[in-house]
Computed example of a mutant assay.
Amino acid sequence: MGKLILYGLEASPPVRAVKLTLAALDVPYEFVEVNTLAKENLSEAFLKKNPQHTVPTLEVDGHFLWDSHAIIAYLVSKYGKTDSLYPKDLLQRAVVDQRLHFESGVIFANGLRSITKPLFAAGQTTIPKERYDAIIEIYDFLETFLGDNDYIAGGQLTIADFSIISTVTSLEAFVELDSAKYPKVSAWIKRLQQLPYYEEANGNGARVFGSFIKKTNFTFST
């Protein structure tokens, strides 16, 4: 097994998705903190690793991968003892892929990043109400996606769960999930919280993220 080095920041949701996957696979790795708030990701050394200067970045025997979705799919394909986390059955895999694209294009881009980028980069602490509405819509979709299933892409735990839980637990820093309105999403979160590696891989980082957001004293416009 080649040496793996994960570059990132624990508070980052995509980094936590990779940490959850590595923990589920029981794959050893070295974690190197890259503080994006201090612009360490813009250093010449890091740009050589990842010209897009994003975290997470995974180093595999001198090769560099970035984008959490690409990384976690690679990790399961490379190190998974079974295909349960990323099924080889094409229909099942397509559902997992759809959920991963939903996380990337909707939950992260339209939900989280559309708030955090102006908040962190420009200090805009008044968040437009449509950002609040976008988060509510995301919760609505997830409640529908779960249906009668225990997990986000069907009856078994997959990398789609890892990707989405990391971002949803970060969205809660802005809009707390109403467990009465979203009982299936609430039960799904609690189910994942029972994983033996959940706290170290996601819970701690989500709390760090939440405490940081709280200090911004953000408000939603009316």
Rank of each mutant, 00 (worst) to 15 (best):
I5H: 13
L6Y: 03
Y7C: 09
S12R: 06
P14Y: 00
A17D: 07
L20A: 02
T21K: 04
L25W: 08
D26T: 11
D26A: 14
D26C: 11
V27M: 08
P28D: 04
P28I: 02
P28A: 01
F31Q: 12
V32G: 05
E33T: 15
V34W: 07
L37Y: 14
A38Q: 15
K39P: 14
E40P: 07
N41Y: 07
N41W: 07
S43T: 13
A45G: 10
A45I: 14
L47D: 12
K48N: 15
N50I: 10
N50A: 11
N50K: 10
H53Q: 14
T54D: 02
V55P: 04
T57D: 03
G62H: 01
G62I: 02
G62W: 02
F64Q: 15
L65I: 15
W66I: 09
D67P: 09
D67E: 15
S68C: 07
A70Y: 06
A70M: 05
I71A: 09
A73H: 12
Y74P: 05
L75S: 12
V76R: 03
V76A: 08
S77I: 05
G80T: 10
G80V: 10
K81L: 10
K81M: 06
T82P: 01
D83H: 00
S84Y: 15
L85Y: 06
L85F: 08
Y86T: 08
P87W: 05
K88T: 03
Q92V: 10
A94I: 10
Q98M: 13
L100R: 01
H101R: 11
F102A: 04
E103L: 12
I107Y: 00
A109P: 07
A109V: 09
A109K: 09
G111K: 05
S114G: 13
S114A: 14
P118C: 13
P118A: 13
F120Q: 14
A121V: 14
A121D: 15
T126G: 12
I127K: 06
E130K: 11
R131F: 08
A134G: 01
A134T: 06
A134M: 06
E137W: 09
I138K: 03
Y139T: 03
L142M: 07
E143G: 05
F145R: 09
F145V: 11
D148A: 14
N149R: 14
D150S: 13
Y151N: 02
G154N: 05
Q156C: 08
L157C: 00
T158H: 03
T158L: 07
I159T: 00
I159A: 00
A160W: 10
A160C: 11
A160L: 11
F162C: 02
S163K: 09
S166N: 06
L171M: 01
A173H: 08
V175L: 02
L177R: 02
K181D: 09
Y182F: 00
Y182V: 04
K184D: 03
V185R: 01
V185E: 04
S186I: 06
S186E: 08
S186N: 10
A187F: 01
W188E: 03
R191L: 02
R191A: 04
L192W: 03
Q193A: 08
Q193I: 03
P196N: 08
P196W: 03
P196A: 07
Y198V: 04
E199Y: 07
A201S: 01
N202I: 04
N204F: 12
A206D: 04
F209Q: 00
S211M: 09
I213S: 09
F218C: 06
F218W: 06
T219I: 15
T222P: 08
T222S: 13
